[in-house]
Amino acid sequence: MTQTAAASPATPPAREAPLTPRQAMLRRALRHRGLIFGTTLMGIIVFVAIFAPLLTQYSPYDQDLLARMKPPVFLGGEAEHWLGTDALGRDFWSRLAYGARISLMIGIFAATISAVIGSVLGILAGYFGGRVDMAVTFLINVRLAMPVVLVALAVVALFGGSLMVVVSVLGLLLWDRFAVVLRSATMQVRKLEYVAAAEVLGASLPRVLWKDILPNVMNHLIVIFTLEMAHAIILEAALSFLGLGVQPPTPSWGLMISEGKEMLLFEPWLITIPGVALFCLVLSINMLGDAIRDVTAPEGRN
């Protein structure tokens, strides 16, 4: 509709030159409230995770049986343990701060493993179609048919709950969405004529995939990465909560909620605080993902 009719041939692009894709993206990013909120919240959590040793006075493992179950300051506690202490007298703030490291690490590593598996499968299936697609679709179906929580719990129970095991299991279980989304995104991009043009211009297969396919499905990949990172973090917390994830005394937020469950009746803050932390982290990642999807929507027909 708004396409300029009959732009005279000799003149460069009409009116004020539109922005390059990158500039347009930046402009949209700076206007996106969700992005700003998500980044800030995420920034705070990442900051706490990185500088946990500087931000805390106590080790997350040190027990002080004389100072058990101290309430946080806003419930009448003392400044010494401003978020209180748990049933073993460990400083709750320290455990929370170090717990951010666990959650972030699990999220990032598990999502990375899934991203590699899922996007390779998805892009190949979408690009080649036919038998390759059939094989990948079959693998996706097998993966989807496996109940994630049950399999993850069983494997962690049998192989032991080290961080390595949890990350690998989650990474190997969460690649389906990467594969599904990138498969269909690649199929769409593959139909576009610039891909055909590149092939006709003698571009090799890796070159087409790298230069023409990947950059144009990248936004999907990033969005799914955030989703799966959040997914992995929640799953780890759930596994640890059920006692079959990261093992005590590691300061995992899921584990903290599980330990606090015993005191549910009298000290509900013990589960509220790590729960809120978990909620904030996942919320910030999801908001970031949504924002990235809005901001990177491909520039096309005006």
């Binding site: 894709p21 576009l192 004529e193 610039y194 055909a196 043009a197 590149a198 006709v200 211009l201 230069k211 023409d212 950059p215 144009n216 491909p298 520039e299 096309g300 027909r301």
Partner: peptide
């Protein structure tokens, strides 16, 4: 060599 129909689909928007 070939020139396609769709002026919007035949150039890679990211290059």
């Amino acid at each position: 060599q070939i020139v396609f129909q769709d002026p919007y689909g035949s150039l890679n928007p990211r290059r």
